[in-house]
């Protein structure tokens, strides 16, 4: 899977309350959640984000609550991929489980700037900054998680294994 998108950049420790504040957790509808995605970190984000855009952030992205509404909101907003220096573990798990592409790459985060066009090759874990031409290599997913991703998320994976029995 490969996609190209415009970068919105965020700092360190972006928590799940910033990604989707709890005041909106009375729904799990992706479109509704998307209207408030990243609102407490950047109030204008829900208006300006376009389908295919990419979030690039610092360390510990998605820390805090276990709410799956956070990756659902990002997915609902049409964000193609999140690249971060590191992810909080429940957010990482949830993203894999719902099929939101995420990549860990400190080097890319250091070099990429807001508004850059970047190209991400998910299978290779390769990130290219189209402004500078520089290429970065992300930490690859373990094989087990690649199986989950290949089945479109954990439910697809469980279904696949139940069918086999």
């Amino acid at each position: 899977m490969r996609f190209t998108g415009k970068v919105y950049k965020f700092g360190n420790d972006i928590d799940t309350d910033a990604i989707i504040p709890a005041r909106y957790l009375t729904t799990a509808d992706p479109a509704e959640l998307a209207q408030h995605c990243m609102e407490d970190a950047d109030p204008s984000f829900p208006q300006k984000v376009q389908r295919g855009d990419i979030i690039v952030a610092g360390k510990n992205f998605g820390c805090g609550s276990s709410r799956e509404h956070a990756p659902i909101a990002i997915q609902g907003a049409g964000v193609a991929c999140v690249v971060a220096s590191s992810f909080a573990r429940i957010f990482y798990r949830n993203s894999v489980n719902i099929g939101l592409p995420i990549l860990e790459c400190e080097e890319a985060v250091q070099a990429i700037e807001e508004g850059d066009q970047i190209q991400v090759d998910l299978d290779k874990g390769e990130i290219v900054n189209l402004r500078t031409g520089e290429t970065y290599q992300a930490v690859p997913f373990p094989e087990f998680m690649q199986h989950i991703i290949a089945q479109g998320g954990l439910i697809g994976y469980v279904q696949h294994n139940l069918d086999k029995k």
């Binding site: 276990s66 798990r93 949830n94 489980n97 954990l154």
Partner: peptide, 20 residues
């Protein structure tokens, strides 16, 4: 440990969860 809703759904179905 805390997990997400999809993990919860899979565990309700299979009794299992994956861990690193």
């Amino acid at each position: 440990t805390g997990v997400g809703s999809t993990d919860m759904a899979a565990a309700m179905a299979t009794g299992k969860a994956w861990f690193k």
